[in-house]
Design a protein around this nucleic acid. Structure first.
Lengths: 264, 264
DNA sequence: ACCTTGGTTTCATTATGTGAAACTAGGTTT
DNA sequence: AAACCTAGTTTCACATAATGAAACCAAGGT
């Protein structure tokens, strides 16, 4: 399951390089890798030839390659909620005048798909594609809360429960309690759990079948407002979420997970 | 060269699926593919398992997967000019009040890396990652003009020279003439060659060594201005480009191509 | 001149990918 | 309903391609 075939291994290497967030040397990758030296070397070569990685011969470093940017554009337009949600997110952003996030659950992480920053706009790519922990973000908890039990277990399993702030939930038990609160309410908050001073309300985007398609959040700072203030956005968030869900349905956004295909 | 190993083949398939720009069925891919049925089938399975592709079991279609979005985020931040250029592009955009593009040459295509749309902002990812033809865009021609002869030949070789508008350059000869004009001037235009009514000025971003790092352009419409009007932006474009080049240098942006590594 | 560290190449061994052919599930025609 | 497609999936003997221990090379350092 971990790796299917050579391709899986190569992608594992690609992921690893991307994870560093900065150009890395061969030896660094090697040290962290489970592959023996020549094998890893060949993977890096192949990926570089394929422009999935870029190699800087001067510094002898590898970093993720431009080919990915092109591919991701296609992925973003076809396999995410972003294009469907765009007009609704725009409207929401305009109405609330605060930062709005659109996220999906990928793997066991929160993947930010789109963002509107009311004040200084722009800089989307820098945010879209970003990943965050599921256990201490508004969108993460909300998506998790409405996932099926098996997924919840699997995801919780993979969380680090690193303490970012004093408010961070650091145990599976605390998180599970929070999740059932969220299920009861229909929405959730981030109470400075990830970054001090940063709070948000998050709303799941649910399909008719009750499946989690993604989540929306409105983010602000404790200096500007408080949880009660954010809670006033719940109706419009609710409305936006259901509109997105409706459009996603009619556009026939896949309601199922890609069923686990029997690998090798 | 065409394909190095299994990984290369798999990525070829991935590219092919992404190129459709919409979910595709197995048989469609098969028809266009050089791989025999079971081989292709296995590749699609592997890529799906790896979430490089997403499979919709209802419609039996494949589309690029979300994992790419995450990877691309890293690529965008590390292997493109975008993060370095961002402040300068912001400033340029604010100064000219027109749409600004930042592009790099990838393969034989123009890859848009960043964009500022003065009026209705946002919607970057939808643009970043987008590709366009090199022979009939301002940025494409400008980057090509300052590339080394071998690259020029190779790129021209791969152009389709499809006629988009009456002004499109449709022959290698016409393009070569245009390129030497651009070299002489130091910048270039798009004279409605790609889309009617759309014109732009483009400026190459050159390293100290004279290597093409990317290109900037200011785009407008014939209803708002004309080529002479756009030409007035040349000084600020020049300035912006050289600032980006400077920063790229000091940040040690790879000045060389990833040297062709001897594949299998 | 002699190590050491980091990167690259070789090559016999073995695992993996390969694809013709056979199979299955829906749908359509006779 | 039986025969017949068409599109997708599985099998399996075979060949190719991946593997990694070991050897090699190139810089720097001592």
């Amino acid at each position: 399951m971990t790796s299917d075939g050579t391709v899986g291994k190569a992608l594992e290497v690609l992921d690893q390089v991307a994870a560093y967030g900065r150009p890395v040397r061969f030896s660094e990758v090697l040290a962290a890798s489970s592959f023996p030296k020549p094998t890893l070397y060949r993977f890096l070569q192949t990926l570089t030839n394929q422009r999935m990685l870029a190699y800087d011969p001067d510094r002898q470093t590898y970093s993720p390659g431009v080919r990915l940017v092109r591919l991701a554009h296609a992925a973003w337009e076809q396999s995410t909620l972003a294009p469907i949600a765009r007009p609704h997110v725009d409207a929401l952003s305009a109405a609330v005048g605060e930062t709005v996030h659109l996220a999906q659950l990928d793997h066991a992480q929160v993947l930010y798909i789109d963002k509107r920053n009311a004040n200084n706009p722009v800089q989307m790519f820098s945010q879209a594609g970003k990943v965050g922990p599921a256990y201490c973000t508004g969108v993460g908890k909300v998506m998790l809360a409405f996932s099926d039990p098996a997924t919840i277990d699997a995801v919780i399993e993979q969380q680090s429960f690193h303490r970012f702030t004093a408010a961070t939930l650091t145990t599976p038990t605390a998180l599970r309690t929070e999740l059932s609160d969220i299920r009861a309410n229909g929405y959730g908050f981030d109470r400075e759990e990830h970054e001090p001073g940063i709070i948000c309300v998050a709303m799941p985007i649910l399909s008719d079948g009750g499946r989690v398609l993604g989540a929306l959040s409105v983010t602000s700072t404790t200096s500007r407002t408080n949880l009660a203030g954010l809670e006033s956005y719940v109706p419009i968030l609710q409305d936006t979420a259901s509109k997105i869900a409706r459009d996603a349905q009619s556009w026939s956004f896949p309601d199922h997970d890609a069923k686990e295909q029997t690998g090798r």
